[in-house]
Amino acid sequence: MSEDVTINIRDIQHYMYCPRRFALLEVNDDWAENAFVVKANLLHENVHSGERNFENKRKIVRSDVSVYNDDPKYNIFGVVDCIEFVRDKSGDYIDTLDGTFRVEIVEYKPTRPKAGEFNQTDAIQVYAQKLCVDNVFHCNSRCFLYYADVRRRSELPFDTQGAEYDKMLCDYL
């Protein structure tokens, strides 16, 4: 990865999902939305509206969080749908929040895949977000995909398969 090229995490996911679709979106600026795209856009508008930001004794929740990782190996940036800072005495110290927290990334998707717990392209997207969140907040975050249609979270296996995801991501960078 060249230091002078910074890549948006969204572009990585779009390209991995479908290179043709990526070209229509980013190169040709020629894309017609369908019902699936509109549904996903509405879900993300709701998540990114800021109405989901809150604090209580147990956790601090922030949506639409900009993050980056400027390590020359990655040089990526993007926006995380939601980060939950769960108060935990054995968690990571987050200086901007002046406390110890378990940091959890939650990426929202409209529908659960028909086969498997999650799509690999979605997992790579969240892995890239994790690299950025861990860089910004100096933590080791846990990561989840939330599927709106079944109202369920799936935890991603980065604690045991992080090296594999790092290789997959770097292959695309």
Results as ranks from 00 to 15, higher is better:
residue 2 S to M: 09
residue 4 D to E: 15
residue 6 T to E: 15
residue 7 I to V: 15
residue 7 I to A: 03
residue 10 R to H: 05
residue 10 R to N: 08
residue 12 I to F: 03
residue 13 Q to I: 03
residue 14 H to K: 14
residue 14 H to C: 10
residue 15 Y to C: 04
residue 15 Y to V: 03
residue 16 M to V: 08
residue 17 Y to D: 11
residue 17 Y to H: 14
residue 17 Y to P: 00
residue 19 P to T: 10
residue 20 R to C: 06
residue 22 F to D: 11
residue 23 A to I: 10
residue 23 A to W: 09
residue 25 L to D: 11
residue 26 E to K: 15
residue 27 V to S: 06
residue 28 N to R: 14
residue 29 D to V: 00
residue 30 D to K: 09
residue 31 W to T: 11
residue 33 E to P: 03
residue 33 E to K: 12
residue 33 E to S: 10
residue 36 F to I: 07
residue 38 V to R: 14
residue 38 V to A: 11
residue 39 K to S: 15
residue 40 A to K: 03
residue 40 A to D: 06
residue 42 L to M: 13
residue 46 N to P: 00
residue 48 H to K: 13
residue 49 S to P: 09
residue 49 S to Y: 07
residue 49 S to V: 07
residue 49 S to M: 07
residue 51 E to V: 08
residue 51 E to I: 10
residue 52 R to H: 14
residue 55 E to F: 01
residue 56 N to I: 06
residue 58 R to W: 06
residue 60 I to Y: 06
residue 62 R to I: 10
residue 63 S to C: 15
residue 63 S to E: 14
residue 64 D to I: 07
residue 64 D to W: 07
residue 65 V to G: 04
residue 66 S to H: 11
residue 66 S to W: 09
residue 68 Y to S: 12
residue 70 D to H: 06
residue 71 D to S: 08
residue 72 P to S: 09
residue 72 P to L: 04
residue 74 Y to D: 02
residue 76 I to R: 04
residue 78 G to P: 11
residue 78 G to K: 03
residue 78 G to D: 10
residue 81 D to C: 09
residue 84 E to R: 02
residue 84 E to V: 04
residue 86 V to P: 02
residue 88 D to P: 04
residue 88 D to K: 07
residue 92 D to V: 02
residue 94 I to A: 06
residue 96 T to K: 12
residue 100 T to S: 13
residue 101 F to K: 01
residue 102 R to F: 04
residue 104 E to H: 09
residue 105 I to G: 01
residue 106 V to E: 09
residue 108 Y to P: 05
residue 109 K to H: 10
residue 114 K to L: 12
residue 114 K to E: 13
residue 114 K to D: 13
residue 116 G to R: 05
residue 116 G to Q: 06
residue 116 G to A: 06
residue 120 Q to P: 00
residue 121 T to I: 00
residue 121 T to R: 08
residue 122 D to Y: 09
residue 123 A to Y: 05
residue 123 A to V: 09
residue 124 I to C: 11
residue 124 I to L: 13
residue 126 V to F: 08
residue 132 C to D: 03
residue 134 D to V: 00
residue 134 D to E: 05
residue 135 N to Q: 13
residue 137 F to E: 02
residue 140 N to R: 08
residue 144 F to V: 01
residue 148 A to W: 10
residue 148 A to Q: 15
residue 148 A to D: 15
residue 157 P to Y: 01
residue 157 P to C: 02
residue 158 F to C: 02
residue 161 Q to S: 14
residue 162 G to V: 01
residue 162 G to M: 02
residue 163 A to Y: 01
residue 164 E to K: 07
residue 165 Y to T: 03
residue 165 Y to S: 03
residue 165 Y to M: 03
residue 170 C to A: 08
residue 170 C to K: 13
residue 170 C to G: 01
residue 172 Y to Q: 14
residue 172 Y to V: 07
residue 173 L to N: 08
